[in-house]
Design a protein around this nucleic acid. Structure first.
Lengths: 248, 248
DNA sequence: ATGGTTCGTGAATGTTTTTGCGGGAAATTG
DNA sequence: CAATTTCCCGCAAAAACATTCACGAACCAT
């Protein structure tokens, strides 16, 4: 088994169970403990996992409940402000999960009357606070890391929807590889959502721009618009604009 | 269990109950008291908790109990304690929503390995905190009052399930009219859940016993058990027992 | 091909971390 | 005050870790 292959296996295992033991892994993959340790160190180096004595934990293991613990909070608020301007009364809106989407949910104006589809527990909790928004939850198995529903049932349901607009919280995007992510199940869901929407909008903080993850969701050309916390005129966006993505 | 994992567990336990006993923890996690004490010391060192003789306290405790404004909180905890004893490893469990069910979710033992089906957002948020519990969310339109999914899609999905046990948080029950509620959509869901379970258990605080609402869910005889905060030997339950309901 | 280089892995060695236990000090309770 | 519980300190064993070295694979330029 190749090194990269092995590390992806470890990553998947962690995202699945929220933790791994060094001893378990070395038995499962049949390599020495030292090799596993080296892998865990590398993955911890790039910040993909948290290494602890005896194994490693998923980053999302430590759940802080205050919203001020959200990384890059102010930037995400700004993104949310821009995003709400795209939503009109009567629209059918599809959204993923993620902290940026939560900010979007909080920024929705009181008078807005629309129907929101989501598979994200935290996002749904926000949406139902709003008096004039109807919430349809997409059911299936819930992934503990991302707190969204994943699986065939969810995807089938999403495909039955014909939404006006879809907001994607993005983990990584670059001009060459497009939208990428690191959880296979989540990728399937996002892909389905893109296909079920007339218009697809990506939300992301600046530092995730031109970064790359393991699994491809879709190419840049499938995006209609992208919203970031930066000035839309910035030259970093030139390539995106060439490929037909509107920057807000 | 990894050290960090253990400390997260302790933190969660403290934030949940505002205090912990060293002895309780060492029994729950199955390590020596010294280990627990060392953990508490470390957590106190970083200022996350307050260590006292015999255990530790939540920092926010002395600011008087901010503890949720849930009505009859302690009684519901007691009910939850009784309810968890019915759940075994590997079971498929169906639950409704409601504050009593939330307490049940919080009271689930860490080691329990089971699959939970629910249409309640708050309940699902609790379930996903537990490491060994798989959560399947039943999707459809979300009712803002009850924060659970309602509608035909949800009911269709519920009918496809074959659960071992179903926990119903109930609003009103009396010997003559059985289980009653005041939301038509919610009633449909509860009825479907009862039909999809081998065993049906009703959870309710004492004061809802022998009360009546507008819409009927089911008769007493369709209940297998009822859990309340009262003594199961109380004579108020005589009629229920006659009709074959086990009282816990 | 060939010699040199780099990379990935496993093994050997010594170090650090974690944990449980015993005994005595300190706190709590009646 | 006395009994019990809880705590603290030091120790020892086991587990996990870092470091170093050696060997073989793949790679590359000659």
């Amino acid at each position: 088994m190749l090194k990269k292959e092995r590390q992806e296996f470890i990553l998947r295992e962690i995202n699945l169970h929220n933790k791994v033991l060094t001893s378990d892994l070395c038995e499962a993959i049949n390599v020495s403990e030292d090799t596993i340790r080296r892998d865990l160190s590398e993955l911890a180096e790039t910040g993909e996992i948290i290494k602890v004595h005896g194994g490693a934990l998923s980053k999302s293991f430590h759940v802080s409940f205050q919203s001020n613990g959200v990384y890059s909070h102010d930037n995400k608020k700004l993104i949310a402000q821009k995003a709400v301007t795209l939503i009109r009364d009567g629209m059918f809106v599809l959204t993923t999960g993620g902290t940026t989407i939560i900010e979007l949910a909080k920024a929705l104006p009181q008078h807005l009357r629309a129907t929101f589809f989501t598979g994200s527990l935290p996002a749904a909790m926000e949406y139902i606070q709003h008096p004039n928004i109807e919430v349809i939850f997409i059911g299936d198995r819930i992934s503990k890391n991302s707190k969204i529903t994943v699986g065939g049932d969810a995807i089938t349901k999403i495909k039955q929807i014909n939404a006006d607009i879809c907001f994607l919280g993005i983990n990584a995007i670059d001009t060459e590889h497009g939208l990428t992510d690191n959880d296979w199940d989540v990728v399937q869901v996002k892909r389905a959502m893109m296909q079920s929407s007339k218009k697809v909008v990506a939300l992301t903080i600046a530092e995730k721009i031109n970064s790359l993850q393991k699994i491809k969701i879709a190419g840049i050309e499938e995006l209609d618009a992208m919203i970031t916390d930066m000035d839309p005129g910035d030259k970093i966006f030139d390539t995106y604009k060439q490929k037909g993505v509107e920057i807000l």
